[in-house]
Amino acid sequence: MKHADNTVRKWDEYMIQDAINIIDSQLAHSAETNRSQSEEDTGIYNKSENVIKIPKFSVNDLNLHYGSFHALKDISINVDKNSITALIGPSGCGKSTFLKTLNRMNDLETGVAIDGSVRLDGTDVYKDMNAIALRQRVGMVFQQPNPFPKSVYDNVAYGPRIRGIKKRSELNEIVERCLTEVGIWSEIKDRLFKSALGLSGGQQQRLCIARTLAVAPEVILMDEPTSALDPISTMKIEDLAMKLKEKYTIVIVTHNMQQANRISDKTAFFLLGEIIEYDTTNNIFLNPKNKKTEEYISGRFG
């Protein structure tokens, strides 16, 4: 019974996937030549047809091996634009590994083999994109707040600087805007030129988000961004994520199911390298189709 369910669901997904692939390929050439152009196209498409939201990321049959270990198995998933997608699952299920494939952070590790496709606005990030350019479009926030051992100002200005912005007035503007956007400008504007390592954990994490925003990314990947923080800082980061999704697409890995429930629009449940279920967060938490999902979200394992 369960098996049949699964097959039906898979079929649905494949049909949608096919439709998306066709649209993707139509958009692909314009996306490659001009990003803003493709965004326009998307908008028009949405208005006139109003059928399917064009995904920001579309992942197809992604397999990843660490040496002989098969860490990700046939992952196919679409990530919606301007939404929060939560990835949940027990430790070692591959959710962080999957997150890293989205901006090719796993290129930094040895012994990783990947096949299948990950497309950002229709462009294959592994075949047709340079990792450096990709990471400027797809930023990342990590589990442990990791500000550089530099001043607060230099932390935020780092990204713009490596992209060649040198003018002080321009940098000042970016630093103020990004710190305001994450809501710590008023708290730390008097200590911009002191070491960022002196900030509290929550402030550091928000600084790291500000640092990511300074590069003007389209997507922000968050790898358990609140697991090292206290409840109040966690709440602030969650509020921030909710606010940021208006302008950015967010993919968040979390161990905290309440968090996924509170902030995400869609949730994917990972288990042993596979996506067991991917649906709207409401459906996953209130009406899970798969028994395993139900067991996990009700805390019976994991």
Binding site: A133, L134, M140, F148, T212
Partner: peptide, 22 residues
């Protein structure tokens, strides 16, 4: 710390930029 390096790589820094600036 590796975290520092990852932070910089995650923002689209090149290897030389990470070595030289971080």
């Amino acid at each position: 710390s590796m975290d520092c390096r990852k932070g910089a790589y995650g923002m689209g820094a090149t290897r030389w930029q990470v070595i030289y600036q971080i």
